[in-house]
Design a binder for these strands. Structure first.
Length: 281
DNA sequence: GGGTACCTGAAA
DNA sequence: TTTCAGGTACCC
């Protein structure tokens, strides 16, 4: 599941536990995690844990016999978990284990979509798209990114080459918060609508981070705990239930083979809203 | 752009 | 048994 708030939660918790620790040994149990060579990490210490888009970045120091710092980008994809454990557990679907000088960091991933990518510089490890919570994302910048887009807004928000970190849950939540139809084309948004979208992207993501993300079935943070934002969801997974704002039943449609949840009452009437918006300027 | 594939398990 | 799932890479 993990989208930006979940990945941010994991990175923050991990940071408190592993920064300054030394890697004694890295074991990779799932060959899918070895795309290309896995560098030597034994003897390196963990200098930092950050987030870039939906990936956790672990910075490793140089060590005796191994030159240069190293960055590991862990993408959790759908079911990946980075878990901090002090004692040996008997975990199912354990894909990798970092044995540290004290404790260990485990990578568990039921569906095996998760990835490890290794980089020699932080620049190489950086994401393509813009971080939605960075000061660089201003309303004019968002307007510039949206300019000319004929893509449905929901699909556009999922693109990682424009904004990073948004996924299927928060794309629906943000559009509802911004009173925008998921079917609107990016190029049709007025200045006021772009400003509203900008505000809601930040508001929703920040609130989700404060709640340690959303858990349906799989997401756990580094402590093995669930998030709590699922209590606050306005539309996602609420098909047929009343909109908290206008009481109309929440609707589920499929866009790009993925579920989109929205309120037909207060987010415009689906596919016609783009035409209506163009008509009214 | 949109379809399909990757992988596993839970729920319908 | 079939369908669905929080993600993205790769095909036309």
């Amino acid at each position: 599941m993990p989208e930006l708030p979940e990945v941010e939660t994991v990175a923050r918790q991990l940071r408190l536990r592993v920064v300054g620790r030394t890697v004694r040994r890295l074991q990779i149990f799932d060959p899918l995690l070895r795309n290309g060579r896995t560098p030597r990490v034994a003897g390196r210490s963990i200098r930092g844990v950050t987030r870039s888009g939906k990936r956790v970045l672990i910075e490793l120091s140089p060590a005796a016999g191994v030159k240069g710092a190293l960055w590991l980008a862990v993408h959790l994809r759908m079911t990946g978990r980075l878990l901090w454990m002090d004692e040996r557990g008997d975990l199912e679907h354990l894909r990798a284990r970092f044995q540290l000088d004290r404790g260990e960091l485990l990578f568990q991933d039921t569906r095996r979509f998760g990835t490890f990518d290794w980089y020699r510089s932080s620049a190489a490890a950086a994401s393509q798209g813009l971080e939605p919570l960075s000061p660089e994302l201003t309303p004019p910048r968002l307007a510039a990114l949206l300019r000319g887009s004929t893509q449905a807004l929901k699909a556009w928000l999922l693109r990682q080459d424009r904004l990073v970190g948004l996924g299927n849950i928060y794309a629906s939540e943000i559009l509802h918060a911004a009173w925008l139809s998921p079917f609107r084309e990016g190029r049709t948004l007025t200045k006021a609508e772009v400003e509203r979208l900008h505000r809601c992207i930040r508001r929703i993501l920040e609130r989700a981070i404060r709640n340690c993300g959303t858990t349906f079935s799989d997401f756990q943070d580094a402590r093995g705990l669930s998030g709590s934002y699922q209590r606050l969801l306005a539309v996602y997974d609420r098909e047929g239930r009343p909109c908290r704002r206008c009481r109309a039943p929440i609707q589920r449609v499929v866009q790009q083979q993925r579920g989109t949840f929205f309120c037909p009452g207060c987010q415009g009437r689906g596919r016609t809203s783009a035409r209506r918006a163009r008509g009214t300027g």
